[in-house]
Amino acid sequence: MHRLQSRTPLGAAAARSDTIGTLTIAEITDVALVSVSARNDQEPALRAALATAVGLDLPEVGQSATADDLSAFWTGPSQWMCAAPYEGGEVLCRQIKHHVGASASVVDQTDAWCRFDVSGAQVFDLFERLTKAPVRSMAPGAACRTGVEHLGVYLWCQSATHWAVIGPRSSAGSLHHALMAAARSIC
């Protein structure tokens, strides 16, 4: 084990969690992200490889899929983001690459993003103030790319009352501020 101490996107040693009224805004640092892009004409091979190796059927536009610990959401044509518990270094990246071989380009994206999980009864009221995504009509598992306070983010519905916001890591503070301010205005 190396000697470098890790910092969260918000710049602290430990992940932050805030509860405002009924809403909880939690910084998530224990999920690894890996982008998977099919090589030209290799999407069927990629789909087959992941289905065979881990039982994951890659989702269609606006959706996510899950198999055990591994999830994936659609990010673009023939392109997905995979998420799984963080196990250090580029473990997930190597695992996925091992499964997909030459059918896809795989890039570790874990530290490119910050993630805040927002949960509570008023979660729709919150996101209505932050994003034009039609959150009330998004079912569990739906995911989309949208904007929150001038930041490009992924919005991922875990359940009706639990959503993940995945935004650019360098702007974690601004994203967190936006979530907190909106939460205070409704709770």
Binding site: E149, L151, S170, G173
Partner: peptide, 16 residues
């Protein structure tokens, strides 16, 4: 809400 320091998002470097 885009007023004052929240006028635009800020990006911080890892060594900030």
């Amino acid at each position: 809400r885009a007023v004052g320091q929240a006028f635009h998002p800020t990006r911080l470097t890892p060594s900030h």
